[in-house]
């Protein structure tokens, strides 16, 4: 009996220790980002172009570029993903549906760097070099399977009875789907979509050789563009202390935006935080 109790105690201790241990890196990350980041962030940092080491400068163009690239990705990925998810939710018993559903599941696991190679091969090579569009395509490729899933799940939660109610009023199926099912599920779809946007906004690997980088402000969809994640990476691996400090500033901006979006969405979705 004593040995059984001891095993139980040890196990309980192990579980508590695991939870505590997992918190250490998280707290260390948040602490370092905030403490190192705050000393760098200023109006100048947020609004100026990058400058050579020793001359200050800021991440303004990277912040702008991130919004643009994520915007392009959303414009491509959200409509396609929502349409595919709608198909899965409303016509789940077709062969196509089963194939799409399984493939979407598997695509959520594609390494992010692969979507970069993909966008490089179809956009960069064929349309005159690195561009914001290529970055957007790479991120859209990452987004689509997540949007498909989130749309499908939200629409499947809509009770069948609502569809019947609409059909019984003489509504055709397409109207039933678009006006009744979609509007009933819209909250879930928006929530899931925003979380996906927050997830891809921090992606770096797909942008390295698609959007590439740029020392200037946005110059057009077909031109290379700076983004926060790539800029943070470049500055982090540079040999200059001043740039390291700026990388932390960029990290605070990026993490701040992503976590704020995450928390807002979850609070709005009524989850307890």
């Amino acid at each position: 009996m004593l040995r059984r109790k001891l095993a139980d105690r040890l196990f309980t201790f192990f579980c508590i220790a695991s939870a505590a241990l997992a918190l250490i890196p998280l707290l260390s990350m948040l602490y370092t980002i905030v403490s190192k980041g705050l000393s760098v962030i200023s109006l100048q940092f947020l609004t100026q172009l990058p400058a050579p080491p020793g001359e200050g400068g800021g991440f303004g163009n990277a912040i702008q570029g991130s919004f643009i690239v994520v915007g392009i990705a959303s414009a491509i990925g959200i409509p396609l993903g929502v349409a595919a998810g709608m198909y899965l939710a409303e016509f789940p018993n077709t062969k196509l549906s089963r194939a799409v559903s399984f493939t979407a599941d598997v695509l959520t696991g594609v390494p992010s760097i692969i979507t970069g190679i993909f966008a490089y091969a179809i956009i960069v090579v064929n349309f005159g070099g690195f561009s914001a569009l290529a970055g957007g395509v790479a991120l859209a490729t990452m987004m689509i399977p997540f949007i498909v899933r989130t749309t499908e799940e939200a629409m499947k939660l809509v009770p069948w009875e609502l569809r019947e109610a609409s059909l019984a009023l003489g509504a055709p199926r397409w109207r039933t789907t678009l006006q009744v099912v979609l509007s009933t599920a819209r909250f879930g779809i928006i929530t899931g979509t925003l979380l996906t946007v927050a997830r891809i906004a921090g992606e770096t690997a797909p942008l390295l050789f698609t959007a590439f980088s740029n020392r200037f402000w946005f110059e057009g969809v077909m031109q290379p563009v700076a983004t926060l994640p790539v800029m943070i990476y470049t500055y982090a691996i540079s040999p200059f202390d001043e740039w390291h400090a700026q990388a932390w500033g960029g990290a605070l901006v990026l993490v701040g935006m992503i976590l704020t979006l995450n928390i807002l969405v979850r609070v709005a979705a009524g989850r307890r935080w």
Binding site: E161, L167, A168, G170, T184
Partner: peptide, 17 residues
Amino acid sequence: VRRRVGMVFQKPNPFPA
């Protein structure tokens, strides 16, 4: 047909959205 023959269901099912 469904326009001419309306239906009221077992459980009230107004469109919640």
